[in-house]
Design a binder for these strands. Sequence first.
DNA 1: GCTTGACCTCAAGCCTCCTTGAGGTTGCAG
DNA 2: CTGCAACCTCAAGGAGGCTTGAGGTCAAGC
Lengths: 157, 157
Amino acid sequence: MLAAMTDRDGRLAIGELAARSGLAPSALRYYEEMGLIHSERTTGNQRRYPRTALRRVAFVRAAQQVGLSLEEVRAALDRLPVDRAPSATEWNAVARTWQLRIDARIGELERLKERLTGCIGCGCLSLRKCRLYNPGDAAGSQGPGARYLEGDPLPES
Amino acid sequence: MLAAMTDRDGRLAIGELAARSGLAPSALRYYEEMGLIHSERTTGNQRRYPRTALRRVAFVRAAQQVGLSLEEVRAALDRLPVDRAPSATEWNAVARTWQLRIDARIGELERLKERLTGCIGCGCLSLRKCRLYNPGDAAGSQGPGARYLEGDPLPES
DNA sequence: GCTTGACCTCAAGCCTCCTTGAGGTTGCAG
DNA sequence: CTGCAACCTCAAGGAGGCTTGAGGTCAAGC
């Protein structure tokens, strides 16, 4: 029982994968249902994950940190092999997309911070002058709505 | 009808606030219910928002970008005056918290990116060597689980 | 061979952040 | 004064990302 529930082939039972990835089994089943990871079944219908699942799970978690939805992660993972470690080339392709994403996000945050600092500097928070209001570069980010505060004919508030 | 639905006092009807903030009226009612914005009512029970609501809504959206939950935003907003523009000092206090948050987030992303780059460099993605697996610094971030992949006695996969 | 814990499959529930809809009221233009 | 858009409330629904629970099976230790 203490020994890992692992095949001689090194395949992992769901509990094992859960323990190693730090996720709940339920989450792993969910990921599998979403097509993020894949398993084979034993004769008794239990899941057995290839070791690569460990990598894929780590990838998923990391991607979520960057703000990707599981759907987006799936799209990215679909470009990596299911059964073996990715080649440098394969990995490269995926990672490139990611880095763009990360850079974009960092950029957004930095611009936000800058605007915030500007606001502190001016101490105004006036609707007209303050760049915190609809910077105009948040387009395409998350959330509905247009946020077109800037340029409105508003008196100071 | 074309003229803004605005008091002579400059207070905004919900539709007006919605149009100017780019959010749906339903979202604004929700925000109000959450205590993020406040309104007075007309004799006919319609909401009238002070102009400061515009600022507060902008604040909320910006905060969401940084990854704050509405609850956290509420906590931050509670430190700003409801009825007037915040003073530089008041704003400073709030903004400081924010910047820390932004910096932290940027830091996370940069570390992630770095690890990712390292992975490309080594081309390995090995469970032992690759820093993408449980970096050990994701603690306290969102999501359940411990993610303690690193340091596991794993053969190369 | 039995017990016990890990596993299985649904289905339902939960949290956040809203949207949608039904049914009814208000308020401004004409 | 009427008509219609905008507003109101309250209840339900929905997406994303899981968890929980019921009811049942599998497999390893004794």
